[in-house]
């Protein structure tokens, strides 16, 4: 058995750890309806795959790994609604795709188009649909990453060293920048969605909630993402369509860097009510990491606190500005 933190894992660690604010935002129906597949079924469907292994179950998808043309990839399966059938050549008007399909399409599109080396890449099989023993499914492949997600790393090894946090910040900012160049916001940046490769580099996962600021809303007005990583403006319904930009992702990255620096969330503690959390994220000035971690660099402190600014205009207006600030203190 491979240790969990050594695997590619598409996890919702907040659920695993009992974070109460996350369960609302996951598709409970989809979770109850996750695909139930065997290795043989997957090998039969994909044809050219071998060495198929089960990895993990997420909110909407089950993740496997398999070797295609000598390279290992992650293979993701999700259930689609039974009444849904895709007629590729049908030129009649069709109803809007169910959300699980729209999200998977966005995830595949984002992985395919995002230029950052720090965003997980699409594998050789794009979005496909199949029916296996009465189950309507979608599937696609993506880069298999050898490493651990930051949530697992935090649990097993404790906080990261400042230099690693700086590297992580720089690389995730590169991914956020590349997404923004496509007009997208990730909306679910958190330790569980960032992997540290065995090489030491970091990679951003799960663009399933990526929000296209000039396209149609995926959420239909509902809050999506993991609430304890929401920026204050994400709670503001009136702001959501017009006001959100990459600076919300910068905020979530700031929360992640804070957690990886201190082992604590800046605005949430176990037992906090939803109201207390909302109040904290919108008005509490977080304790600087240096007051929690002895010897933590003041410069990095300042950057993280700035990323956690209550308004977008208090953060960084360009990803390059944040990168420059982080690079300036690397190695100090």
């Amino acid at each position: 058995m491979i240790a969990r933190h050594e695997l590619y894992c598409i996890t919702y660690p907040a659920i695993i750890q009992g974070h109460p604010f996350c369960i609302d935002f996951l598709d409970k129906e989809a979770m109850a309806n996750l695909p139930n597949l065997t290795v043989e079924q997957i090998e039969h469907v994909l044809g050219n795959v071998s060495g198929v292994r089960y990895i993990a179950r997420g909110g909407q998808k089950v993740v496997w790994s398999g070797v295609i043309d000598g390279t290992t990839y992650a293979i993701k399966f999700a259930s689609t609604p039974e009444e849904f059938t895709r007629e590729e050549d049908d030129d009649t008007e069709v109803e809007a795709d169910p959300e699980v399909i729209v999200r998977a399409s966005r995830e595949v599109e984002t992985m395919r188009d995002c230029a950052s080396p720090y965003m997980v890449k699409l594998g050789p099989i794009g979005l496909n649909f199949v029916e296996i023993e009465g189950q309507s499914l979608l599937y696609f492949t993506e880069e298999f990453i050898n490493g651990s997600d930051l949530r697992s790393l935090l649990e097993s090894d404790g906080p990261l060293a400042p230099d690693a946090i700086i590297d992580m910040g720089i690389q995730m900012t590169d991914a956020i920048k590349a997404l923004w160049e496509l007009g997208k916001i990730h909306r679910d940046i958190k330790p569980g969605n960032i992997m540290r490769r065995t090489s030491g580099d970091f990679v951003l996962l799960d663009a399933g909630l990526a929000f296209d600021v000039i396209g149609e809303s995926l959420s239909g007005g509902f809050l999506v993402g993991t609430r304890i990583y929401f920026s204050p403006e994400q709670f503001d319904y009136s702001n959501r369509r017009t006001g959100l930009d990459f600076r919300s992702d910068i905020f979530a990255l700031g929360v992640t860097m804070y957690e990886m620096a201190t082992g604590r969330h800046p605005f949430w503690n176990r037992g906090h009510s939803s109201q207390a959390f909302y109040s904290n994220v919108t008005s509490l000035a977080p304790e600087p990491p240096s007051s929690i971690v002895e010897g933590f660099p003041q410069d990095l402190d300042n950057i993280i606190i700035r990323m956690l600014g209550k308004s977008p205009h208090l953060r960084y207006r360009k990803c390059d500005h944040l990168t420059r600030a982080l690079e300036a203190i690397r190695g100090h």
């Binding site: 403006e233 006001g243 308004s311 977008p312 205009h313």
Partner: peptide, 12 residues
Amino acid sequence: LDAFLDILTSWD
């Protein structure tokens, strides 16, 4: 003013 600044600072 804060909301206005959010817009102004989003412009390149």
